[in-house]
């Protein structure tokens, strides 16, 4: 499932295909391109947390649009990882309100613990650090997003450790977003 080598053409799972079929129902038949962003989210969840050119070509084929139309979009939106990532991508908010409540310190702390700099993956392959802009959770700053979960108020070493331990103890990376188990939703 996680294979993204160029030689094997990636294929969506049956569950993903069913979800994509449901999504197409949301838009007029001649406007299937509308489903591009939701399908890219599915593809990224299904193929190892990033979208390779081959996966993007599959998305183009699934919708019936040109590959370049997918590349233009995937490279515009920051949520799509265009290079391989670690098991968990820690998206650290760095914008003003989080900065006021210690996001710089949080980033430094995560770099120290994981051994990865921002933009890199830790040597054990577990964590990729990524700085992102405002995640709309300024009241509980500083925060980190991992896939669909927000970890909020990470202003103590204990809170940071709790997050990292929870992630370390996840045996499997959830394949599809709606299959996520073992992760509670936002604390709020």
């Amino acid at each position: 499932m996680e294979s993204t080598t160029a030689t094997v053409k990636p294929q969506f799972s049956a569950a993903a295909k069913a979800e994509i079929a449901r999504l197409f129902e949301h838009y007029p038949a001649e406007r299937r391109k509308s489903a591009l962003l939701p399908i890219l989210h599915i593809a990224q969840a299904e193929f190892g947390g990033w979208v390779s050119p081959e996966v993007q070509d599959l998305v183009a084929e699934t919708i019936g649009i040109l590959p370049i139309e997918v590349y233009e979009v995937s490279s515009f939106y920051t949520m799509f990882n265009l290079k391989p990532v670690g098991k968990h991508v820690l998206e650290i908010c760095r914008t003003g309100p989080c900065m006021l409540r210690g996001s710089d310190e949080l980033t430094a702390q995560l770099e120290r613990i994981t051994g990865a700099k921002v933009g890199e993956t830790s040597p054990d392959g577990l964590f990729t650090l990524k700085e992102v802009e405002c995640l709309a959770a300024c009241g509980t700053a500083p925060i980190v997003q991992v896939r669909e979960k927000y970890y909020e108020q990470l202003d103590t070493p204990e809170a940071v450790d709790a997050m990292l331990n929870e992630l370390r103890n996840l045996v499997h990376r959830p394949l599809l977003p709606w299959e996520e188990t073992g992760l509670q939703h936002s604390q709020q």
């Binding site: 050119p53 590959p67 370049i68 139309e69 590349y71 490279s75 515009f76």
Partner: peptide, 15 residues
Amino acid sequence: GVLGRGDAAEIGTYI
């Protein structure tokens, strides 16, 4: 097409 965004946007073929 146009890839990326902002002042990092570029004309390209991606692959």
